[in-house]
Design a protein around this nucleic acid. Structure first.
Length: 806
RNA sequence: GGUCCAGUGGUGGAACUGGUAUACACGCAGCACUUAAAAUGCUGUGCCCAAAAGGCGUGUGGGUUCGAGUCCCACCUGGACCACCA
């Protein structure tokens, strides 16, 4: 009888009491740092999809533990940010209270699954002793000029009433609430991530343990493109003018095909040229209309391109001195490149569409990769021409080589309550003054009303006795910065804090960091590929440059976890009523059965559909394991085993030890479980026929060891029953015997012209000669050879004989 | 439109550097046990043929090879990420 509830409760308590999962402090041992992305403690709780990654890392952590490593396997909570705050607002709770309640609920759910976390190292981003160091890092960035104040228009979510970073958008909508985002000019703090773009891109090469797809996403997001910036002089009809317009292009070779220039509606030059533009009312109207469009409307690819010509001004192409028309059109983005382009309708699809609509000239200047009608550059190939043209530009000081990135500087302030206060003070005399490090953390004040103001100011601005302070520099009256940090801030460095979670002198001890860093294995959702994983790499490099830490990249290996989809094929959500709760499953079938099932469902990275019937299958598998062990009389002492009878099963055991170990390392959990099932089926079969186990207690305990990472409670229980005094996780992972896994006999495949005609069980070292002799004697093979000319034999030792006939 | 990934039984999925396609599990069918059911155990389960022998089979069409799910080319379908990025 498999009483999973009793077994699992018993061992959870014993593990907690004995401190089994306390992180080792003996730095002479090899270390292994295995990390999950810590969750937001939302109010909804966990569904069965959430623990999938946690189960995987737990299995890896337990394997490493048994292999003799010091294992760091921590867990914590990322509790600041909009989701927590919106939940609190909806339920009329203070975010602090809501966060505490939700964390407690999460921990209760996680506890049921028997994870090996060292909870003594728990990190919660909303803890002042934690965000003290988040603020400290911000100050270092400010001091290095990596955090700066900006008044540029940014993404504004009208529903969440806060500014957002580019990474917080999905198809022009707020990733949190789905509202269409507007552009609003707003004072804000911005982090200069673009300064690190090149390193973030190049160092991807060092991350051999990352999947190519994730790296590719980061490359796309960083979006490096090489080209040139070119200066076009602007000529007004009436007056001589000093103005110029800079354009960026990756197709400098097509510049002789440029027939007009386009400015983004927000381009500053337009206003400067106001007096020279004879159709100003029309231009002004167009700019106003563009402003009123949402991002979504502006970037709709299907929409027709629109624009207005700037009458009275021309731009001069520096290569041929030809004056071309200047347009303002919203198909050009102010936020990329210079906010202005040279339009080449013959060689650019967007310019083509625009030129077609407005009847502008097309000029084909590159045919089959060779330039034509391009002055002195005619006849050159595109690649050579670009080089020569850049040299020409640089010599005449009319332009230069330029690399642009799609990634934008990180809008880092939020006009909301529930975030880390930005530790800066505004003094009318001294300007922006940092809060002295000794005064950190700047604590979030207790307030009654933390609802967003919608004015572009944080609710903190309303709390006079918090806002008004003395300037740390001159002692005069000053005001605190009232914006808070975005939800991503705390997760940028939490993995460093687990190393030394209670340090009050520095964010982490450098010697400890040298030992534990970098994270050896990181597991989480692919949706973070272009957000958290880029942000954290950015902060990590900044800290590295500051000399605070020893390594340049935070995560050596990263694996994405595939979603678990509802049985109806939709994402699990309250809305669809298809949520499966892990506590319910654990209570009914056992945490071990649930763990094994989630690993068995399919490849780890792939999305899979939940099927409770499948969970029944893994439950049955565990029952079989229990049945093997339950009757002590069927477990003979190792000495009494008759080897000859059991050679095959012992060989299978060693093969399984090999496969399970390797599969865990490679995150092929589904095939590891399948290998365990095959072994248990064979043993059960043998036991049913012979009324005893095929081998002794020692061998059976090896079976328990390789099962233990997957089903820790049951394995521990049976380990105890079989005479173990210390925990199975204090035992050593079994080594397989190379001799044992060699097969004595093989199934020789016999083919004629590549088609299977027979398989024979023969000695593994059978020679070609012998195999050929057997084939010639075999009636069925002879039938296929009859009347044919034998061309040759292909013999693969230990595998097959293929007879090629004509 | 760009980049990347994937198409295998009724279902989830296996298949190492090209070498028995469908391991393992679910489902289904039959049998045993039972008064009966559940549970459990055993057997079977890609398609065609009564069976054997054989033929056909990994999205489609070609190619390379003694041999292709695996490699190459073209296409179709689905997914992920990015996207008026000049």
């Amino acid at each position: 009888m498999y009483n999973h509830q009793k077994i699992e409760k018993k061992w959870r308590e014993i593990w907690a009491d004995s401190g089994l999962y306390k992180t080792g402090e003996d730095f002479s041992k090899p270390k292994y740092y295995v990390l999950d992305m810590f969750p937001y403690p939302s109010g909804v709780g966990l569904h069965v999809g959430h623990p999938k990654g946690y189960i995987a890392t737990d299995i890896l952590a337990r394997l490493r533990m048994m292999q003799g490593y010091n294992v760091l396997h921590p867990m914590g909570f990322d509790a600041f940010g909009l989701p927590a705050e919106n939940y609190a607002l909806k339920n009329k709770l203070h975010p602090q209270k809501a966060t505490e309640t939700n964390i407690a609920a999460f921990k209760k759910q996680l506890a049921v699954l028997g994870f090996s976390y060292d909870w003594a190292r728990e990190v919660i981003t909303t803890d002042p002793q934690y965000y003290r160091w988040t603020q400290w890092i911000f100050l270092q960035m400010w001091k290095k000029g990596l955090a700066f104040e900006s008044h540029e228009p940014i993404n504004w979510c009208p529903s969440c009433q806060t500014g957002l970073a580019n990474e917080d958008l999905e198809e022009g909508k707020c990733e949190r609430c789905g509202s269409e985002v507007e552009q609003r000019p707003l004072r804000q703090w911005v982090l200069r991530i673009t300064e690190y773009a090149e390193r973030l891109l190049n160092d991807l090469e060092k991350l051999g343990g990352w999947e190519e797809s994730i790296k590719e996403m980061q490359r796309n997001w960083i979006g490096r493109s090489e080209g040139a910036e070119i200066i076009f002089r602007v000529e007004a009809e009436a007056v001589a003018d000093e103005s110029v317009v800079k354009v960026f292009t990756t197709r400098l070779d097509t510049i002789f095909g440029c027939t007009y220039v386009v400015l983004a509606p927000e381009h500053k030059l337009i206003n400067e040229l106001k007096k020279r533009i004879s159709n100003w009312p029309a231009v002004e109207e167009y700019i106003a209309a563009a402003k009123n469009k949402t991002d979504l409307q502006r970037t709709d690819l299907n929409k027709e391109k629109t624009g207005v010509i700037l009458e009275g001004v021309k731009a001069i192409n520096p290569f041929n001195n030809e004056p071309v028309a200047i347009f303002v059109a919203d198909y050009v983005l102010n936020s990329y490149g210079t906010g202005a382009i040279m339009a080449v309708p013959a060689h650019d699809e967007r310019d083509y569409k625009f030129a077609e609509k407005y009847g502008l000239e097309f000029r084909t200047v590159v045919i089959n990769g060779l330039l034509q009608d391009s002055g002195e550059f005619s006849g050159l190939s595109s690649a050579v021409a670009v080089k020569k043209m850049i040299a020409w530009l640089e010599k005449k000081k009319l332009g230069a080589r330029k690399t642009n990135y799609k990634i934008k500087d990180w809008v880092f302030s939020r006009q909301r309550y529930w975030g880390e206060p930005i530790p800066l003070i505004h003094c009318s005399e001294c300007g922006v003054v940092p809060v002295p490090e000794k005064d950190l953390p700047v604590r979030l004040p207790e307030v009654d009303s933390y609802e967003p103001t919608g004015t572009g100011e944080s609710p903190l601005a309303l709390i006079d006795d918090w806002v008004n302070v003395k300037c740390p520099k001159c002692g005069g009256p000053a005001r605190r910065e009232t914006n808070t940090m975005p939800q991503w801030a705390g997760s940028c460095w939490y993995y460093l804090r687990y190393i030394d979670p209670n340090n009050d002198r520095e964010l982490t001890d450098k010697a400890k960091e040298k030992y534990w860093s970098p994270v050896d294995f990181y597991v989480g959702g692919a949706e973070h590929a272009t957000r958290h994983l880029i942000y954290a790499r950015f902060w990590h490099k900044v800290l590295y440059d500051l000399g605070v830490i020893n390594y340049e990249e935070p995560f050596i290996k990263f694996k994405q976890v595939g979603l678990i989809i509802g049985a109806d094929g939709r994402k699990m959500s309250k809305r669809w009523g298809n949520v499966i709760n892990p506590d319910d499953m654990a209570e009914k079938f056992g945490a071990d059965a649930l763990r094994v099932y989630e690993m068995f469902m399919g490849p780890f990275e792939q999305a899979v559909v939940w099927n409770t019937a499948g969970l029944v299958g893994t439950r049955k598998f565990l029952e079989k394991v229990l049945n093997l062990a339950e009757d002590p009389e069927t477990m003979p002492a190792a000495k009494n085993i008759i080897a000859s009878d059991n050679k095959k099963l012992l060989s299978l055991l060693h093969k399984t030890i090999k496969k399970v170990g390797e599969d865990i390392e490679n995150f092929n959990f589904n095939t590891a479980v399948s290998a365990l099932m095959i072994l248990i089926n064979e043993l059960t079969d043998y036991k049913n026929k012979n009324r005893s186990l095929p081998f002794g207690v020692e061998e059976f305990r090896q079976v328990l060891k390789i099962l233990a990472p997957f089903a820790p409670h049951l394995a521990e229980e049976l380990w105890e029953k079989s005479g173990g005094s210390a925990s199975i996780f204090r035992s050593t992972w079994p080594k397989y015997d190379r001799e044992m896994i060699k097969d004595e006999t093989i199934n020789l495949i016999v083919q004629v012209n590549g088609k299977l005609r027979a398989t024979w069980e023969v000695a593994a070292d059978i020679s070609e000669k012998e195999a050929w002799r057997m084939a010639q004697e075999n009636e069925n093979i002879r039938k296929w050879l009859a009347g044919k000319e034998i061309v040759k034999n292909i013999f693969v030792p230990g595998k097959l004989l293929n007879i090629v006939v004509k």
